[in-house]
């Protein structure tokens, strides 16, 4: 069941890229551009084991944020959002577990299915874990401007 405001869901569904920020062991924010995948309830991102340092950080500190800021990546929309939440790493089956999100991924990046068919060429890229984010707080800029304070809502109450 959706817990996010409609414009935020629209951004999540449209975004070809968002910025996942995790907190490293020294307390510094570390930002990774990734494709956000939204199933109507939770936000998912996938990470190849090749680029799995972010997973180490999340396991040590699950507090993360996901921002969608790039108008080019959302079809020209100028509104922006940052979603703070708690993340967990799903890694029961790095070889194929993530493929349940392939239909959502394919909508944003159709070429991924062709690359997957040729996984022999880049096998480690397709060994992947899922990052599942449970949203806690949403900060939404309708005009996308930092000069305006964002509308803040608790993710659990936003849909009410």
């Amino acid at each position: 069941m959706s817990t996010l405001p409609d414009p935020v869901e629209e951004l999540l569904n449209a975004a070809l890229v968002g910025e996942l920020t995790v907190v490293d062991g020294s307390g510094h924010p570390v930002t990774y551009p990734l494709i956000p995948l939204y199933d109507g309830e939770k936000i998912y991102l996938t990470s190849s084991t090749l680029f799995s340092r972010k997973l180490e950080h999340i396991k040590a500190n699950p507090k993360v944020s996901l921002s969608i800021t790039d108008p080019v990546a959302v079809g020209g929309r100028t509104d922006r959002v940052t979603i703070q939440g708690d993340a967990r790493v799903i890694e029961e089956d790095p070889h194929g577990g993530w493929e349940r999100l392939l239909p959502i991924w394919e909508k944003k990046e159709p070429s991924i299915v062709y690359f997957l068919k040729a996984r022999v060429a880049l096998p480690l890229f397709f060994e992947r874990s899922l990052i599942e984010i449970t949203p806690r707080q949403v900060l939404y800029w309708a005009d996308g401007s930092p000069a305006t304070a964002p509308v803040v809502s608790d993710a659990g109450k936003a849909a009410a």
Binding site: V22, V23, T31, K63, S65, T82, Q84, R136, W141
Partner: peptide, 10 residues
Amino acid sequence: DDAGYPMSVA
């Protein structure tokens, strides 16, 4: 931020 979550502003 104070709650320990990352916060991003464009």
